[in-house]
């Protein structure tokens, strides 16, 4: 292999070309959802597949955004997804950042079983807690509210975020904090004012992940909420399929809007997200 390439540079180019080909093949589904969402119904079912729409049908988007189709109320469902994801993110950060910090900074007795608890809870299937949570939430009177899916999805992100943040807090030099203590901070204000800003990139990763986990949820929302005006995008798309059958262009357009916030977050924070996934998952 090495003899083929005259120097480092041509080797670099050859590998890059292969990598681009891999990416094009592998990410084809992402391209296909976008292209199909801009096609007409006839073009989708035409005998010969087209790799680019003959005419760009933006109305697939516009009619849904303006809720002219009256099938799934996209504007309301987009808002619902946003509320659930944001609520879940805030709750998860409030609980998991201090927990990740406390477990790496202090040598508390019982640390091992506590870490094991977080590790194990991360792996559990939603089906296992679905029936009990439904009954508990029903008794608490929070079925058909945003709170139910917010509480439930936070259980996915909290253990994950703790595992992502632990190595970051472990690597953080505590001397900085001690200097703040001498300057008149107490332990908690030193954590808020000194430690958190230094570990900012870890916090951003944590926020991105907990938002995504909230946004992507399907099972908790469809189980705890049966009012149509509380459902998020992920369940809207499911409803949609029942109503539209095989109007794939409309369904794909709805799908693109559903994943839009995820793609924006991903592109903006790619390095953090990829690093966090590797770190959190390996440790978790």
């Amino acid at each position: 292999m090495r003899r083929l390439f005259r120097n480092e540079c041509s080797r670099d180019i050859a590998y890059t070309i292969i990598a681009v080909i891999i990416a094009v093949v592998f990410l084809f589904p992402v391209y296909w959802i976008l292209i199909s969402s801009l096609k007409s119904d006839q073009e989708i079912f035409s005998r010969v597949q087209t790799w680019w729409p003959k005419k760009i049908h933006l109305e697939n988007y516009i009619n849904q955004i303006l809720n002219k189709t009256k099938t799934a109320n996209l504007p309301v469902q987009f808002r619902n997804s946003g509320i659930i994801a944001t609520g879940s993110m805030i709750l998860s950060l409030i609980l998991s950042i201090p927990a990740g910090y406390g477990i790496s900074r202090f040598n508390i007795p019982g640390k091992k079983p506590i870490l094991l608890t977080f590790l194990v809870t991360q792996m559990l299937p939603a089906s296992l807690i679905l029936t009990p949570l439904f009954l508990i939430f029903s008794k608490a009177g929070i079925l058909n509210s945003y709170l139910a899916p917010i509480l439930a999805t936070a259980t996915i992100s909290i253990p994950f975020v703790i595992m992502v943040l632990r190595p970051i807090f472990l690597a953080y030099p505590h001397e900085i904090e001690e200097a703040a203590l001498i300057d008149g901070c107490n332990q908690f204000t030193a954590f808020l004012k000194v430690t958190l800003p230094v570990c900012k990139s870890g916090i951003i990763t944590a926020a991105a992940f907990s938002f995504i986990y909230g946004w992507n949820d399907l099972i908790y929302s469809i189980t705890f909420n049966n009012k149509a005006d509380l459902l998020p995008m992920t369940s809207g798309i499911y409803q949609f399929m029942d109503a539209y059958g095989t109007q794939w262009n409309m369904i794909m357009a709805y799908g693109v809007i559903t994943e839009l916030p995820i793609i924006v977050l991903f592109v903006a924070l790619q390095k953090h997200i990829v690093g966090g996934l590797a770190g959190g998952a390996v440790k978790g």
Partner: peptide, 10 residues
Amino acid sequence: VIGYMMPMTV
């Protein structure tokens, strides 16, 4: 990695 982050419903 983007496919892994996309909502499973989509």
